[in-house]
Nucleic acid binder design. Structure first.
Lengths: 200, 200
DNA sequence: CGACTTCTGTACCGATCGGAATAGAATTGT
DNA sequence: ACAATTCTATTCCGATCGGTACAGAAGTCG
């Protein structure tokens, strides 16, 4: 079997692209899109700006890659929650997963929520991709609830869109409170409270 | 009698300081603390940087003044809600006021929530004052619920801190969804849903 | 061995950031 | 009139922003 890097010509990359992306994700998570400078990012990634541009294109594309990694890692609870057998299970799994991620994993808070809320000129690209993420998550939850109505899991009169907006609002509010230092146990109580008398 | 500006010596200010502050508040509201540059701010205020520094000190102090104006204006529903005769009335007034402000008044969303969520170096001063505002609002609501328990308005077993965290979480989540384009009526339904079966 | 391709480090780009220095204009008191 | 005071406008500051040009280093090809 041939040389160590079959068919790949040119000087080999000296850093692990996944590990660099993980570090970049953590910086974006902590500081937001605009608050994370290229100096912050490349410093944490352990590479130079040139290497970052060669590997990822520019800051916005790096952010998209970091967001994808966040979605598949710390925020993977969102997709998993939809697979719960009941609507209530999905809502609870989503909210408990959110509490766990925003308090115990990485920096306090949620990259999706605090990455770029205001729409200043510089943050616009990140703001739009994050708003899209949130809207999509809400629609996925709505779709899950719609299925629950069809399956008889939710009462026929239930409004899937309304329930989904409510669950997402609680989740986003939990993320905001986590940045204020509210802890894991207190936010679990918020989830308990939000789900009392489900399906409301 | 006397001269037009009794006792005030020196060249008179040529702009209305309240109107300038109102404009600055709107810029901070829309773009956040870091996203609002001095060029944006003074442009909207209709004054030069020199005049702004002379009148307000620096960007951080301008932000604090703008935040105070926001508190007394668009966010005055928060203080008014505490004066409702019942705990449920306070919670509902708070949430309905939030929906109104984040969808119908000024830019979409809430200055308190989206002003400076991430804690990058530049946004730290604003982040801390906003986190303090949110924590204080939560404690005020908790105190209001504590009073309601003492008055028999809430059942003796109710947990004021827990209810307050829940109500604030829903309010913050509503603010986030407003920035995603969710409208007034849909957010009203979120409030309806959140308050079903009160006091939970 | 070169020729070719790709990555890395340095040095640098124009633009913009928050902020300050300075001079002149407009008002007050004497 | 004149000094004292406070505002406005222009100009500039060092630092930092995201992004790039360039040269050399490290590989795969023939």
């Amino acid at each position: 079997m041939g040389s160590p890097r079959n068919g790949v010509i040119g000087r080999p990359r000296e850093f692990d692209i996944d590990e660099a992306l993980e570090r970049a994700m953590l910086v974006f998570w902590e500081r937001g899109y605009e608050g994370a400078s290229l100096t912050d990012l490349t410093g944490a990634m352990g590479i130079t700006k040139t290497s970052m541009y060669a590997a990822f294109g520019n800051k916005e594309q790096l952010f998209r890659r970091a967001l994808a990694r966040y979605t598949e890692g710390p925020a993977s609870y969102a997709a998993r929650a939809l697979e719960e057998p009941t609507a209530r299970g999905a809502a609870e799994a989503f909210l408990r997963g959110a509490v766990r991620t925003v308090t115990l994993t990485g920096p306090s808070g949620c990259l999706i929520v605090q990455g770029a809320l205001p729409s200043s000129d510089g943050a616009r690209p990140a703001h739009e991709v994050l708003a899209g993420w949130r809207a999509e998550a809400r629609l996925d939850m709505e779709e899950r609830f719609r299925r629950a109505v069809a399956e008889g899991d939710l009462p026929a009169g239930a409004d899937p869109a309304r329930l989904a907006r409510y669950v997402m609002a609680v989740g986003f509010g939990i993320a905001v409170q986590a940045t204020d230092g509210v802890g894991h146990d207190e936010l679990q109580e918020v989830v308990d409270t939000a789900l009392l008398n489900w399906p409301l």
